[in-house]
């Protein structure tokens, strides 16, 4: 039963193709919904669509929101303006801060990078205060939860592990540089490498079946991905010493043995006297950013 005086915390996960919303009280989740963006038009129309959906949510809840957290994949500048979002370029230049305040006038609202919020949620779920989270999917995202707080912290930019350089002369990244982790280890990058090694096109289902069957081209393509991920984990560990590394993302969770391979390559990279952190699968799957957005709402409310 819903208690009318219970505080509602709203998390919003804004994605390139859809938006997910989740409302929690102190006792658990009371509402979860999602919608796909209408055909691409403009940021103004996208926001209108979001407003309609939020109005419907308010009507369902019946009480004002206590706080709102928003997960954003876009790059947001210090002035609260979207500076880049390859998945929805129409949003470039949008005053995100002002737009969110207009959308939620009744409650404090904060936003953070979706990878950072994924790390926040996964860290809370794991019960560890020093967690590196890596999501390997269409891109590579992630975040670092250090001493119980996000690193580098709200308003100070996001933890862009996908653009950590792991191969100086590696393949070209969408950002223009070479050898970014994302360019080497994302799902599409791994499928491209697998296709080269196989000499034929490779789908995700082909790859996971062939990895399971131990086929050389598939294992080799995934091994290189896991080696790059391990190199990134090793680098972060050298500098900031997370006590746990969690691997999630749709691609990594779908490939059998992915986490174990990262762990094995990480062990190979260890220096004497410096044991690497344990590597484990992330627990929340595709819900990590959304759950992190709710956690962010709780944090700004208290």
């Amino acid at each position: 039963m819903r208690s009318p005086d219970q505080a509602h915390y709203l998390g919003v996960d804004i994605g390139g193709t859809k938006v997910a919303l989740r409302v929690e009280t102190d006792t658990g989740c009371v509402d979860e919904s999602a919608f796909a963006w209408e055909p691409r038009r403009s940021a103004t129309l996208d926001l209108a669509q979001l407003t309609t959906h939020v109005d419907g949510l308010r009507a369902r809840l019946g009480t004002p929101l206590r706080a709102v957290g928003v997960a954003m994949p876009a790059t947001v500048g210090p002035a609260g303006r979207v500076t880049a979002w390859p998945s929805r370029p129409e949003w470039t230049g949008l005053e995100l801060e002002a737009s969110l305040r207009a959308l939620f006038p009744e409650a404090p609202v904060a936003w953070a990078d979706d990878g950072d919020l994924g790390a926040l949620a996964e860290a809370e779920e794991s019960g560890c205060d020093d967690v590196l989270y890596l999501g390997v999917g269409t891109g590579v995202g992630g975040g670092l939860f250090l001493g119980g707080a996000l690193c580098p912290g709200l308003g100070r930019g996001s933890f862009e592990i996908g653009h950590l350089i792991v191969e100086l002369d590696g393949v070209r990244c969408v950002c223009g540089r070479r050898g970014c982790l994302q360019a080497v280890a994302s799902g599409p990058a791994t499928l491209r490498r697998a296709a080269l090694l196989r000499g034929a096109a490779v789908t995700f289902d082909d790859l996971r079946a062939a990895v399971r069957g131990g086929q050389l081209w598939a294992v080799a393509a995934v091994e290189q991905t896991c080696r790059a991920v391990a190199a990134a984990v090793a680098g972060v560990h050298e500098l900031l010493h997370p006590r746990l590394a969690l691997i999630g993302g749709g691609f990594a969770t779908g490939i059998p043995g992915f986490t174990g391979l990262v762990s094995a390559h990480l062990a190979d990279l260890a220096r004497p006297g410096h044991p690497p952190p344990p590597v484990a699968p992330a627990a929340l799957g595709g819900l990590s950013s959304l759950r992190g957005a709710v956690s962010l709402a709780r944090r700004i409310a208290s």
């Binding site: 996960d13 994605g15 859809k18 997910a20 999602a34 999917g137 990895v211 399971r212 131990g214 050389l216 294992v219 995934v222 091994e223 993302g249 749709g250 969770t253 779908g254 490939i255 059998p256 043995g257 992915f258 986490t259 174990g260 391979l261 762990s263 094995a264 344990p278 590597v279 484990a280 699968p281 627990a283 929340l284 799957g285 595709g286 819900l287």
Partner: peptide
Amino acid sequence: MTVPIVGQPATATGAAAP
């Protein structure tokens, strides 16, 4: 958005070729 998959073993399950 992906379906959450939990309980995946932390060690390699035959993926690592000798």
